[in-house]
Amino acid sequence: MTSMDHLRQSRNPVANEGMRRSADPLPRLLAQLIERAGEPASIERATSRPWASALFQGRRHVIALRMTGPDAKERRARFALGLEDAEWTLTRHFVADIKIDGGRSAADQEWIELSALTIEDW
């Protein structure tokens, strides 16, 4: 093959074009949030939408979590402690940002509203 043949070969001009995009990491993140919350806990609402910047792509998540039981208030405090520094195990993604946006309390119930940003890990 001559050097001219190299120039004529069709090449994909975008290196990642045609690569399968990673699946939404939300289900795995939800499972880890439930584990962190302890039982009994449930996901009351969860949404996920694509997100991108000039350099990164990922997903923005909004989650409502409910904890029940006589120890719900203490579990909520433990859940929130160090949440932003917690390690999450997601396939081909990492949690770039996670925070509690709000919540409410009732007898033996705690609701936590949080948001997270996951980025595709190339």
Rank of each mutant, 00 (worst) to 15 (best):
M67Y: 08
A80E: 11
R59L: 09
T89S: 15
D97K: 14
Q57P: 00
R76A: 09
R75Q: 03
A72D: 03
S42G: 14
L90G: 12
L65R: 05
E87G: 05
W51H: 11
D101E: 14
A52T: 12
R92F: 09
G82A: 06
W88N: 08
E44P: 00
Q57L: 13
L65D: 05
R45T: 11
R92H: 15
R36E: 02
F94H: 13
P70Y: 13
V62F: 15
T91V: 14
D71W: 07
G58Q: 01
R60W: 07
E87K: 14
A37D: 04
L81A: 13
E87C: 05
V95C: 12
S42C: 02
A96I: 05
A46E: 01
I63E: 03
A41Q: 09
A46M: 01
V95S: 01
G38T: 08
A41L: 04
H93K: 08
E74V: 07
D101N: 01
F94V: 06
H93T: 03
K73T: 09
P40W: 01
T89L: 04
L90E: 06
P50Y: 09
R49F: 03
D71K: 12
R78T: 07
D85T: 11
R78W: 03
T89W: 12
R45Y: 10
A41S: 14
A46D: 01
I43H: 10
R92I: 04
A54V: 13
F79G: 06
P50M: 05
V95Y: 10
E84F: 10
A41M: 10
K99R: 15
H61K: 05
E84L: 03
K99S: 12
P50K: 14
K99C: 07
S53D: 02
T89N: 13
L81P: 00
E87W: 04
P40Y: 06
P40C: 00
M67Q: 14
L83Y: 10
E84T: 13
R78H: 06
F79D: 04
R75L: 00
R45G: 03
A52W: 06
A72I: 10
G38W: 12
T47R: 15
R66F: 03
T91L: 08
L83T: 02
A86R: 13
D101T: 13
